[in-house]
Amino acid sequence: MTLIKDRHTLQTFNGVKVALFIIPALIVLGIFWVLPLIMGFIFSLFHWNFGQNPVWVGWHEYQLVMSSSLFWQSLVNTILFALGVVGVGTALAIMLALILYQEIAGKGLFRTLLFIPYVMPLVASSTIWLWIYQPGVGLLDRMLQLVGLPGSTSWVQNTTWALPAIILFTIWYSLGFTTLLFLAGLTTVSPELGEAALIDGASPWMRFRRITWPLLSPTTLFVIIVNTIGVFQSFTQIFELTRGGPLGATTTLTYLVYEDAFQYFHFGTSLATGVLLFIVVAGITALQFLVSRRAINYGD
């Protein structure tokens, strides 16, 4: 690998030329991705409301964040959100991937249809679901009425059901994506092993449990991490379906960052929450790099 890379490389060094090639990208990434990160850390040490001059307060904004019950509520919401989406979504996606990986008629069509929600604009799909969740007349309640249940729940305006409603939407929207990742993972599982086990008389469940599942575990870990990050970054469906409500029941860390800064103009606490969000997500992403490096080594 090193040999090939070195042979690719021109052995002349010209600083000006290199600069011309990399500077456009580095300016953009520097000003809009690296600088804001540094600013976030520094500015979060100031007390700063919209239209006022910043005042140095040290860790005070962090103390404010930590002592706010809404922060802890949104942390819990984010974790429950992640557990719900990752738990149910992963199980469903493995099942679908195992079926779609086999030679069955129409699998191309099924894969195509399954993936549509993921490419749709989230604003449009959330709008559909806002109607599905309408009390009494929405699709969900109509279907419940059809099987004889009461069916008049205001799903997204109810502190008990709002978060599950967001979770259900997010599973619906990401299922095609998760299945796609598992289908890609299944291509790395050697079919000979399954055939050998079949000759040995292993049942389908045993073959899954003893062969496919262990060999799929790097993919599973990757899927869990990627979807967890996705949940941590979710904003649109919360904005469209619940606006973080009712009573903060669906406020996540990302939504809190937005709400604090752009609804209440508390820039200081919003910046501090943003820094905490960065630390959590960067930690999970670092884990992903470790996992995917293993996967990439296989691929090479």
């Binding site: 000003i31 991705w33 600088l35 990160l37 976030g40 943003g274 670092a286």
Partner: peptide, 21 residues
């Protein structure tokens, strides 16, 4: 490595500083 590092930054976490810029 720094360029790869930018892929680790969730845009939501730098939303407010970017807005200020």
């Amino acid at each position: 490595a720094g360029v790869l590092g930018t892929m680790m930054v969730p845009f939501e976490a730098i939303l407010v500083p970017d807005y200020l810029i």
